[in-house]
Design a protein around this nucleic acid. Structure first.
Lengths: 196, 196
DNA sequence: CGCCGAGTTGAACTGAATCAAGAAACGTGG
DNA sequence: CCACGTTTCTTGATTCAGTTCAACTCGGCG
């Protein structure tokens, strides 16, 4: 078996997952490579997969009616990204999922996930925890948007995703934080002055 | 069996749930009444239950470091409210859950839910759908906070929760939308002028 | 070398917050 | 049923964080 990151991801989180199950999983998955800038999905398409990032960096974003981008999330290697709305409810997606760097992605069919969940209680629980965790993180972000200034949100981002910060253009960070790129530039300048 | 709203809620969403299971569930649940203004949980407590609203109206909110309230969500009768973070991760809660009106609430222990999920696949799937739905709704709200003005968010609220709008004080709606009460008042005035 | 996209800076503008004061609505007890 | 205090909502004046638009800098790269 190839040494995928996904293998580590699963074996370290799901107790009692055997090589058989893993092989089954990998058999049904395809490995795809994307160049930086390429899209995995675009609005109005149906998202049919979960994307596990083996290498590189993805981001999910929307474009609103005023033409502005809003980054929903980033996913570096070792992370699972998907458009749950589209996959679970079989709706056309509202989002772009784009490779920011040259990336290698495991395309996982949701059916395979479901099958795994059926035969393995531990996987089922793990999957549940993923959902709960996602909810927690989204609620945290809402709280931040409701209560924190641009500067506070940026400081939080630095602390939470220091690695991502270094790998994505500043403009994209701004669209994640919900502020204009120029504003982020100024926030950074301000912080630099303070600390010196 | 008493004619609880929860009964309808479950039988209409979970196929093949039998009276036995339901009785089991209700045996383990207690029914509590709260006066308007009373708290079901407060920060630093561990939230031990899911709250199913039989009658009345609850809201969940946080207070930030600047002393401002931020409403996470409202729950009128027929809705399930809980602090997932606290229940699932066994952490002290960061939130208040408060009865806005005189309310009757079924206190459901998460263990009972788990037990039901174990023996009934359909319930398991239903529970999963609840989570997915929650995620979808949170993401929608983030998108709104990132892209819409105060007025747009208010209009969205009216459309999505017309019933709730009439039952909660305006101030609380403002804390849900993430704007100052005075601003909401002005937004409303503006809209009234427009339409006349 | 010259172009190009990303980031910075400045100046004017704006949506919403804040502070302060008044008006309306609400419930409670006499 | 009215009078009272309390809370909720409105209105005005001012301030402020963040946006917008436009011009400029910088580093990379064909």
């Amino acid at each position: 078996m190839k040494n995928f990151r996904l293998t580590t991801f699963l074996t370290s989180n799901v107790t009692g997952i055997d090589n058989e199950s893993l092989n089954l999983l990998f058999d049904k998955c395809s490995l795809k490579k994307y160049k930086g800038g390429e899209y995995l999905i675009q609005p109005d398409e149906n998202c049919q997969h979960s994307f596990f990032v083996e290498k590189g960096l993805l981001r999910q974003y929307a474009i609103d009616k005023k033409g502005k981008e809003h980054t929903i999330q980033f996913a570096p290697e070792g992370w699972l990204m998907t458009d749950r709305e589209s996959v679970f409810f079989s709706e056309p997606s509202k989002y772009y999922i784009q490779a920011i760097e040259d990336s290698t992605v495991l395309m996982i069919e949701p059916k395979v996930f479901e099958a795994l969940a059926k035969e393995n209680k531990s996987f089922q629980r793990f999957n549940n925890r993923l959902l709960q965790n996602h909810i927690r993180q989204l609620q945290y972000r809402i709280n931040l948007l409701l209560s924190a200034t641009a500067e506070e949100r940026y400081l939080d981002f630095i602390k939470t995703y220091p690695d991502i910060l270094l790998r994505v253009p500043q403009t994209m960070v701004a669209t994640y934080l919900g502020i204009a790129p120029e504003s982020l530039s100024r926030v950074r300048k301000n912080l630099a002055n303070k600390s010196s």
